[in-house]
Simulated assay, not measured.
Amino acid sequence: MARPPRFDMNQLLDAAVRRAAALGPAGVTMSAVAKEVGAPSGSVYHRFAGRTALLAEVWLRTVESFQEGYFEILEADVDARRAGPAAARHVVAWSRAHPEEAALLLYGAEGFGRSNWSEEHLHRADCGNQRVRTALASVAVALGAEGPQATECVALALVDLPLALVRRHLRAGTPLPAFAEDLAEESAAALLGAFPAGSASTR
């Protein structure tokens, strides 16, 4: 009977995350990841067709992990005025709980070679991005405001501001302050408060 593989995909991707957080995408090579886990290079090539596929997978796994919790929060409460600020809080809370993954995301998909990704990887990325856009537009509609300006306001509250808070501290190498989640949540609530009161109910 064949022996199970000693090094699975998640072990290799975890190693890639560590290297990306410490050294940037340039530090994520097939040989470096293999060395990180004490595996022969063949183990990495067995799991990934090449470095481009490795970079795509480490980026997508990280983004999809974040998005899973983000969507759960947005969909858990039919009141957009509660769900929106809670989602903004999640951005900071997730980043605090996953500092290496959050540092990795600072480089953006292009930093991980998106222009060379396979169609399958591009499709996964595009589906995730579209789901975010749809969710933000849904929140705007639930708040009783439609159109580009309303969607931009929601994106600012639920994505841009909490990410800016996280990014500033990650780039400075300083820890997130204890009140960061509260600040993100309260800022989002204040921005969403610009929409007419009583307009948010169900989605």
Score class of each variant (00 low, 15 high):
13 L>R: 02
164 A>V: 02
10 N>H: 13
148 P>K: 02
178 A>D: 15
90 H>R: 04
149 Q>C: 07
5 P>N: 10
1 M>S: 15
25 P>N: 09
131 R>W: 06
180 A>M: 11
168 R>P: 00
37 V>T: 11
133 R>T: 10
119 E>D: 15
137 A>C: 12
112 F>D: 05
186 E>P: 00
160 D>T: 14
178 A>I: 10
192 L>T: 00
172 A>V: 07
158 L>S: 05
76 A>R: 13
177 P>E: 10
74 L>C: 08
157 A>L: 03
7 F>S: 12
82 R>W: 04
191 L>K: 07
54 L>G: 01
186 E>A: 05
199 S>V: 02
123 H>I: 07
165 L>K: 01
57 E>N: 03
25 P>I: 06
185 E>P: 04
198 G>E: 08
32 A>V: 11
121 H>G: 13
95 S>N: 00
150 A>F: 00
153 C>I: 07
132 V>L: 15
200 A>H: 05
131 R>L: 07
48 F>L: 01
16 A>D: 05
19 R>H: 08
117 W>Y: 12
129 N>G: 15
152 E>M: 10
188 A>I: 02
55 L>K: 06
149 Q>W: 04
59 W>R: 05
8 D>Q: 09
79 D>K: 01
117 W>Q: 13
183 L>A: 11
3 R>V: 13
104 L>T: 03
164 A>P: 04
73 I>T: 14
68 E>V: 10
45 Y>N: 05
90 H>A: 01
12 L>A: 12
182 D>T: 06
160 D>G: 11
110 E>R: 11
